[in-house]
Amino acid sequence: MNCEAVEEFLPAHALGALEGEDAAAVEKHLKGCPTCRLALDGHRLVVLNLPETVPQIDPPADLKGRLMARIDALSASAVAAKPLEAPGVARRWFGFPGQRRVQVLIASLSTVSLFLVGWAVFQTLEVNDLRDDNVEMASEIRKQWDTLAFATADGVQTVQLVGTEVAPMTKGSLLMDLEENKAILMVTGLTPPPKGMTYQLWLWKHETTPASLGTFGNVRNGYVMWRFQSPISLVANRFWGVTMEPRGGSEQPTGELVLAGEGE
C-alpha cells in the first residue's frame, strides 16, 4: 500500500475502526513511513479530544473511599506476602545464612512490594497467555518469593536508583548482599534497548572511573528483574549508574546515564 492509499485509512485507524487486511496493511506501512505517522498524529489528536464532548458528571461521593480501600488491601496483601517459608527458599537460591529482620529496610520494602505487585500483574497477563503452562507460572512465583526473601534478609543493602532527565519515569532498586556479592536489580518504566544495544550497570568506588557490574537487556513491559553475581566487591561504594551501551557492554560508559543512585 502506498502513502496515498494509506492516507485514506488513517482516520479510521485513529478511531480504532479498521480491521482485518486493511489494518494489517496500514500498520505495516506506518512502521516504515514517518510522513504517514505524522499524518496519523493529526487524526489521533482529534480522537484523543473526543472524551471532551461527553457531558461531565461527578462520580458518586463514596467511590473514592472504595478505591482507596482497594488500594490499601492490595498494598497490605503485598506486604503480608513477604513471610514465613521465605528464608528457606532464599538460602537455597542465594545460599546466604541469617534470620529475617523484618523491620530492616522497611522503607525499601514498600518499593520492592510495589515492584512485585506490578511485576505480578504483567506476569499474570503473560502467564495467562501461556494458558496451562503451570511450570512457567510456578517458576515466576518462586522468583518473586526469592526476591522478597532476599529483600528482607540480614545484611542486604538497598540503593534507590532514580531516572535521569532522559528517563524521568524510570525507577529502580538495587538490593545487595554484601557478604556474598550477590545482587538483584529491579527497574520499572524502562524502555527496551534498541536492537544491538543493551543496558550496563556501573559502580563508582572512587570519583574517577567506574567498574562494570554487567549488562542486562531483558526488558519486559518496562520491567527488569536481573539477578547477578558481582565480579567485584560491593562493599563501600559511592555511586551507581545505568547507561545504554552496544551489545556486549563497554569498557567505560559511552551512553547517557539513564538511572543513578548514591550510597550512604
Binding site: P59, P60, L63, R66, L67, R70, I71, L74, V117, G118, V121, F122, M169, T170, K171, T188, G189, N221, G222
Partner: peptide, 17 residues
Amino acid sequence: EEVTQDVFMTVWTRGST
C-alpha cells in the same frame, strides 16, 4: 464506577508505563 476504579488501580500498579 467499576471502570473508574480499575483505571485508577492501573495508575497505582502500572503508572510507570
